[in-house]
Simulated scan of single mutants.
Amino acid sequence: MMDYVIICLAGFLAGVLNTIAGGGTFLTFPALVYTGMPVVTANATSGVAVFPGYLGGAVGFRKEIAAFERRRLVRITFATVAGGLVGSSLLIVSSEKAFSFAVPFLLAGATLVFAFGDRLRDWAKARSDMDPNWSLGTFLVSVYGGYFNGGLGIVLLALFSLWGMRDLNQMNGLKNGLSFILSAISVGVFALAGMVAWTEAILMMAMATAGGYAGAPLARSLPPKVLRVAVIAIGSAMSVVFLVRLLHQA
């Protein structure tokens, strides 16, 4: 019973965080591992749990997505599907030991991306006059997202800035749309492979939806800097916890 309480609480708080600042994966994945779930299964289940939220975001920005150049949209959609298949397939063939080794570094990397996301986007904007390789960039980011979802949104926004995009609404719409497609691919692959703990995933989905609704008024009242610090602190703490866990297992 305590495990379900932890899972529900993590799902709710992840929904709140995702609505306000992002970073909900920093709670859902560690909570599942804490309850005793193997790390590969926990990562797959966490990916399924945050899946529905992307659809709502994509629908909300459907006009901005529709305004994107159709030919390029088709190209990057195919690249997203291909990258998602590769990334999720890599997770399937990863052993528990190999993924356990990668987890603290993936968490730390995602935390750094979140912490320095603004600088990353500024860096990308400064180089937006470069001729972007739309398909390759999308494919590489999608491989990462299919394997480990943490920090995906920030990486996608930086990629869009590198392409020269400036309309934040269109960027957010495209981010949610590609994230939904990527997550759909991952969910399908993980489900066929029997890697998803469905009871926990459905509980987290429901609680994350409720948390997302509750997070809206908080987003209007709390200072963004405080929220960013909270997410960075959570990500840093989880990175240390999993690193200590790795060293203990060694």
Results as ranks from 00 to 15, higher is better:
Tyr4Ile: 04
Val5Ile: 14
Cys8Met: 13
Cys8Asp: 07
Phe12Asn: 01
Phe12Ile: 02
Ala21Glu: 03
Gly22Cys: 12
Gly23Thr: 09
Gly24Ile: 01
Phe26Ala: 05
Phe26Gly: 01
Leu32Asn: 02
Val33Thr: 15
Val33Glu: 10
Thr35Gly: 01
Thr41Arg: 15
Ala42Phe: 06
Ala42Thr: 06
Asn43Ala: 04
Thr45Asp: 03
Gly47Cys: 14
Val48Pro: 01
Gly53Ser: 02
Phe61Asn: 14
Lys63Cys: 05
Ala67Lys: 11
Glu69Pro: 09
Glu69Thr: 03
Arg72Tyr: 04
Leu73Arg: 00
Thr77Ser: 13
Phe78Glu: 06
Gly83Ile: 06
Val86His: 07
Gly87Asn: 04
Gly87Asp: 04
Ser89Leu: 03
Leu90Phe: 10
Ser94Pro: 11
Lys97Val: 07
Ala98Trp: 02
Ser100Trp: 02
Ser100Lys: 10
Ala102Asn: 10
Pro104His: 05
Leu106Cys: 10
Leu106Ile: 09
Leu107Gln: 09
Ala108Ile: 01
Ala108Gly: 06
Leu112Met: 12
Asp118Gly: 05
Pro132Met: 07
Pro132Lys: 08
Asn133Cys: 14
Phe139Lys: 14
Leu140Thr: 03
Val141Lys: 09
Asn149Glu: 12
Gly150Ser: 12
Gly150Thr: 13
Gly151Asn: 04
Gly153Ile: 09
Ile154Leu: 12
Ala158Asp: 00
Leu159Arg: 07
Ser161Thr: 07
Trp163Met: 15
Trp163Leu: 11
Met165Phe: 14
Leu168Ser: 10
Asn172Met: 11
Leu174Asn: 06
Leu174Thr: 01
Leu174Arg: 08
Asn176Pro: 15
Leu178Glu: 11
Ser179Asp: 06
Ile181Thr: 13
Ile185Thr: 08
Ser186Lys: 00
Val187Gly: 00
Thr199Arg: 05
Glu200Pro: 01
Ala201Met: 11
Ile202Arg: 03
Leu203Tyr: 13
Met204Leu: 00
Met204Cys: 00
Met205Ile: 15
Gly212Ile: 09
Gly212Gln: 11
Tyr213Val: 15
Ala216Tyr: 11
Ala219Tyr: 05
Ser221Tyr: 08
Ser221Leu: 12
Lys225His: 05
Arg228Val: 03
Met238Ile: 04
Val241Lys: 10
Phe242His: 08
Leu246Val: 02
Ala250Cys: 07
